[in-house]
């Protein structure tokens, strides 16, 4: 019993120290539109670690969902009403880093918080449902009226590196268009802003 208490105190001290080290590292690079207190210390949100997916999703949607205060709206990516695919449901954390835009493996930096730290490489990556951890590239190319385009959503391997790492490719293995490999159709509206038709608020479905 006593040993456990000592152990517990040690662990708590370690966590405390760890947080001290983490805080400054996390504090500087946050995107301008979010303040730390938008997510941390929110009454009803879980403790400092905010680990539960459902609670993180709820938190994001209190601002980015119906009745939320942000003008930017989103919803999770999940099966269409009539879907040809096995059930999938990808929540906010599945695609976004809550803290910052990360560098991607091609040397650029992602935008809109897409991709997060999955390992020690520090690159923006996504844990995909069927293909393990994969790189994700989502950059603004400054075309299409300032909206990200081309490589950003689905690159159709335009850079010839044999990797299909666009954000709308990197997970897909079964869809009719834009797989994360050369199979299937890669021509569907390639180079366009996919979210013009596949609205984030409709889970990217149309």
């Amino acid at each position: 019993m006593k040993r456990n208490t000592v152990y517990l105190i040690l662990v708590m001290m370690a966590v405390g120290l760890g947080t001290l080290f983490l805080m400054p590292r996390e504090a500087s690079p946050l995107i301008a539109s979010h303040e730390c207190s938008y997510c941390h210390g929110v009454h009803g949100a879980p403790g400092p670690a905010l680990l539960k997916e459902a609670q993180v999703e709820t938190l994001c949607l209190t601002c980015h969902g119906p009745g939320g205060t942000s003008t930017l709206k989103a919803d999770v990516h999940t099966n269409a009403a009539r879907s040809d695919y096995p059930p999938f449901r990808i929540s906010c954390r599945g695609c976004h880093d809550p803290h910052d835009n990360l560098p991607n493996w091609l040397g650029g930096t992602n935008i809109k918080l897409v991709g997060s730290e999955q390992d020690t490489t520090g690159y923006a990556r996504i844990t995909t449902p069927n293909s393990g951890i994969r790189d994700v590239v989502y950059e603004s190319r400054g075309t299409d009226a300032g909206e990200p385009s081309l490589h950003s959503f689905a690159d159709n391997d335009e850079d010839g590196n044999t990797v299909y790492d666009g954000v709308c490719e990197t997970c897909h293995t079964l869809t009719r268009h834009h797989h994360n490999n050369p199979t299937g159709d890669h021509s569907h509206h390639v180079g366009e802003t996919c979210t013009r038709c596949h609205d984030h608020l409709d889970g990217f479905l149309r």
């Binding site: 929110v42 009454h43 009803g44 949100a45 709820t58 938190l59 209190t62 009745g67």
Partner: peptide
Amino acid sequence: FSRPQGLAVEEGHIYLADGMLG
């Protein structure tokens, strides 16, 4: 409150949905 949403009034009480608290 955390994230107060819609509400209703009934006999001296206010019923307030809180989006974050559930």
